[in-house]
Design a protein around this nucleic acid. Structure first.
Lengths: 349, 349
DNA sequence: TTATTGCTTTTGTACATACATATTTTGCTT
DNA sequence: AAGCAAAATATGTATGTACAAAAGCAATAA
């Protein structure tokens, strides 16, 4: 065994067993020379290795100090996979993710799939080649079966913790998630409107988004549960691509709404645009038509008529999901969580 | 300068300029001793540093080989440092960054400083410990001198390319940046209003943000340049912390505006809130008071009166900055860029 | 009290030397 | 030509010495 390794190991063991607590000075190089019976150069080599390992801090004229251990500084990187980075409500979630990760000494590697399965696959393959401490995924929005399940399973087998947020693939068993119950959300909004006396309720949902399907499903079951007939024409479907043109033809929208006295919207963005359209057509909100939606974002406040909206209250789904991931990485336990909806009643209903 | 640093720098420069391509052997320690006229120990110290930096690979009995690729650049991770992740206009920039990086086989590690120097320092130190292929930085918004310049310089010395966007520290020389000319922007907006016949112009600017100072400076110089007197009371200053309460007292705002027939706002968010306040106070926009601002974001469309606003047109400053960084990482050349302002005239002026 | 100066301690830089160990080359033997 | 051993070459480990530079401390002067 090499002498400098002996010195290094000996010092390291003493530091780890508390002989030299963090913040204290080691013996001087001269003293170590005598203690170990080696030359000063050999002592210096050992100390230099400990310095490289971030265990001690040398300071000219002062001495070699044992560093105060920061277990969070293990430079763990977490892969955060989302569909769209600037998609309306996500930036706030991302802020929560980054805040919590950085508090836990982790950092976020960001990738966007743009709702493309092939992008998601490439990102997951990259992670397999260059592993990370954990993965936070926004379940891809497509309602189609996901062909990348195999990669998620391989990553899980490797022991890389994965936490889903916003939505989760049903095909994946025993996977941690933090989501809302979208089906229940749709149900709650309709129940609220029914309680207000509405009998004919139209809706606008997103078609290329499983959350849209779920919210629609809740809408339907609440209507049927109250014995109300729902015409297919009263539900307007849109996709990411058709969103911009959705309100270009007011007549189409108005004819779909027909005699309905209320509209359930997929989110505040849609509700906001709908309200502007209704006002420009001479309709009054909520007197003629009530509008409710999801997210209770800043848009619901900016709208000419403030929007009644479901949300997670003051909970940040990004913070919660990142917290669970940090727990697992840190060896603590965590479990899935369904965030309850909170209704904020405003002017639009 | 220390001798081992001279040897190290000289070798590094020769490696970088192609004198020793990847895969070739450096001269032996003995030869280097003669070439540089220093002792073998000094040569060894220099080589040891290059080895730590992953630039060469020493092999007993064989020699010191120049590594074919820098593994830090190979891992393809870029550190993206911003102040606030969900700050109004940034998510769109971040989307551009992620798109361009991923097209170039790179990925973004995201960190937020929250405008705190100590956070920025910690992030930069982490990068020094665990190098990345490049750094994209949103210059910290404070108008104070930045104490972290030394770390930026050390990173640059290590050969890690750095590109600033939105703003840059004047103290850093030869640093790439992609910014707007904020001073000119303030000037252009005021010139536009003067052209419309306005003579008394109020303003609202952000105080804890160098861009706010620059835009204010442009506003002032345009007013003075036209021989118009500017009362200090006509400029309303706010900070990140006071933003929420800024419009709580309509009287304060109205008294500051006084007899002004136009207001230059720091950005669309402020202009939006101002317009809502003016309308609720019975003022007509633009008949009574014109409002102009910066960014031309989606908010300027959502406003009850669509807002005349300066912006980068269809250019995404995040994409541009990320493109330049990818160019440098890929061995191509890139230069700083000042994005010209583009005025979009709408209803509010 | 405060500021300055000089001394001591401690780490940093630099050189010289000797021998160890791994790798490559050379030359000899078969 | 192939295999093997010795020699040469290159880096690794270890020690000794000398002086430089930074930090802390104590004595001294204003």
């Amino acid at each position: 065994m090499k002498k400098y390794e002996l010195v290094e190991d000996s010092l390291l063991r003493q530091i780890n067993t508390g002989a030299y607590p963090g913040g204290t000075l080691l013996p001087t190089e001269e003293q170590l020379t005598e203690i170990f019976g080696v030359s000063r150069q050999t002592v210096r080599k050992a100390l230099s290795i400990l310095e490289d390992k971030d265990i001690i801090e040398k300071k000219q004229g002062s001495g070699s100090m044992v560093k105060i251990r920061n277990p969070a500084a293990d430079s763990g990187k977490v892969s955060v996979i989302v569909t769209y980075i600037d998609d309306y409500i996500f930036p706030g979630q991302l802020r929560g993710v980054e805040e919590v990760l950085s508090k836990n000494g982790l950092s976020a590697i960001l990738s966007a799939t743009k709702n493309r399965i092939c992008s998601e696959r490439k990102i997951l393959e990259d992670i397999l080649n260059d592993p990370v401490a954990g993965i936070l995924v926004e379940g891809t929005k497509t309602a189609l079966p996901n062909p990348n399940i195999d990669l998620y399973e391989r990553l899980a087998e490797r022991g890389i913790p994965i936490v889903f947020f916003n939505s989760v693939y049903p095909a994946l068993k025993d996977m941690l998630y933090v989501c809302a119950d979208n089906q229940r959300g749709g149900y709650e909004l309709v129940t609220y409107l029914l309680g207000k006396g509405h009998k004919s309720i139209a809706s606008i949902f997103k078609a290329d988004d499983i959350q849209g399907h779920e919210r629609y499903s809740g809408y339907i079951s609440a209507m049927f549960g109250s014995g109300l007939f729902v015409s297919d024409s009263k539900t307007i479907w849109y996709t990411t691509e058709t969103k911009e043109k959705l309100f270009d033809e007011p007549r189409n929208i108005l004819s779909s709404i027909g005699d309905a006295t209320a509209v359930v919207c997929y989110n505040d963005e849609i509700a906001f645009m709908l309200i502007k359209l209704l006002i420009s057509c001479g309709k009054k909100v909520p007197e003629d038509i009530a509008v409710v939606s999801f997210d209770n974002s800043s848009l619901s406040e900016m709208s000419p008529v403030k929007i009644t909206s479901l949300s997670y209250g003051d909970k940040n789904i990004g913070s919660i999901a990142a917290g669970k991931l940090a727990d697992i990485i840190g060896g603590r336990k965590a479990s899935s969580e369904i965030i309850p909806w909170k209704l904020t009643e405003k002017e639009s209903s």
